[in-house]
Design a protein around this nucleic acid. Structure first.
Lengths: 204, 204
DNA sequence: TCGTGTGAAGTGATTCACAGCG
DNA sequence: CGCTGTGAATCACTTCACACGA
């Protein structure tokens, strides 16, 4: 709800800073993302008083605040379970490190890649999962294994004491309440698009 | 809102069919996805009367209905703009084809890969984009180019007459109203997870 | 004057509860 | 009896409108 938009505000704010802007108003920020100015103000005011009446929001200040709210002002240590096509692509993606997500270990059952490094990240045998996660203080896991193995992978991560999981496999995982979960299903996204295109008459 | 859950129902229904189930009740389906039974019924009844009082929903019947609603009962012809790590991973992903999304062409500026095929899909020079899209009747595009090039890629797709875009680049695209748009930002997803973990006390 | 923060009003989505059907 | 479909009630989110600060 609110939080999902904070990430987007953050993205736009970084863009503004790159362009040399130092302040921005709620209506400008809103226009960039297709939301109303009132929405932007409500979202931001929900977590504190970050604006300056008559001025707007100072970009660098607001970036710092949002990062603090999201918890991305500190570093998160991440592991990847499954080094197939998707896993490999994500390991090579630079964007995570830029936002403070440091992938330090990957796991896969394929003996041909165990022991190798991808983009400097070592690939381990899954039977070392518990040890590696504890020794390296890994907090988050990304699951990119095939659907049938995803629940098992998740169970192992939970058993090793992980705090949160991003699941890319197209299945619903069941996890204990205390573990955070975000699901990303690319097929679902395409289906959404198909619907929105097939019913363009109604709404965006 | 409703539609985003339809995809998930569909996913669970396919799973049920694989397990040999022929009918399912709203409460069973809801439990699998963590929503209430009333929610499931409201969602499904919104598009028609698919249930059988006293019985539940017939899985195969409901699958067909949801596919028809989403527009995935027919095939969609898709192109990929950007054949870097992410693009390559998605080209190799089998899940799209299974749900009726057929990727028939890819585009990239790297001369070393133009003219090659990846998973049977030819990689073209972007200057052929308009022609290829028209000749092959391509309807949807997936953008996996670096952020600074994403808007340009989107503009070209729109100019070529595409109906919808999935954008994986971490920028907000501005498109004409008539073109469908779904954005997937992996960093945003991780930020969501970070927040949910950092504030586990409040809610899931 | 410009632009925030915020009650109040409005809109939309979710849950409740139950009539009705197989 | 089990389970759907659905009005009514509740809850959440969004927009409006304006007081107030720089």
């Amino acid at each position: 709800m609110v939080v999902s938009r904070l990430s987007l505000y953050l993205r736009e704010l970084r863009q503004l800073v790159r362009e040399g802007r130092s302040t921005v108003s709620s209506s400008q920020l809103g226009k960039m993302l297709g939301v109303t100015d009132a929405q932007v103000r409500k979202d931001l005011a929900y977590f504190g008083h970050f604006g300056h009446p008559g001025i707007g929001y100072r970009c660098d200040e607001l970036i710092a605040e949002i990062r603090r709210i999201l918890g991305t002002d500190r570093q998160w240590i991440v592991t990847m379970i499954g080094v197939g096509n998707m896993g490999r692509a994500l390991l090579r993606y630079k964007g995570f490190a830029e936002q403070g997500f440091r992938i330090v270990a990957a796991f896969d059952t394929d003996p041909r890649i165990i022991g190798t490094k991808i983009e400097g990240i070592p690939v381990y045998n899954p039977d070392q999962l518990r040890d590696v996660i504890r020794q390296q203080r890994i907090q988050l896991g990304m699951i990119t294994v095939p659907a049938p193995q995803a629940q098992h992978a998740a169970d192992q991560l939970v058993a090793a004491g992980i705090a949160g999981i991003v699941n890319f496999a197209p299945v619903t995982l069941s996890l204990p309440e205390k573990v955070g979960l975000v699901g990303v299903d690319l097929t679902t996204e395409l289906e959404q698009l198909a619907f929105s295109v097939a019913n363009r008459n109604s709404k965006r």
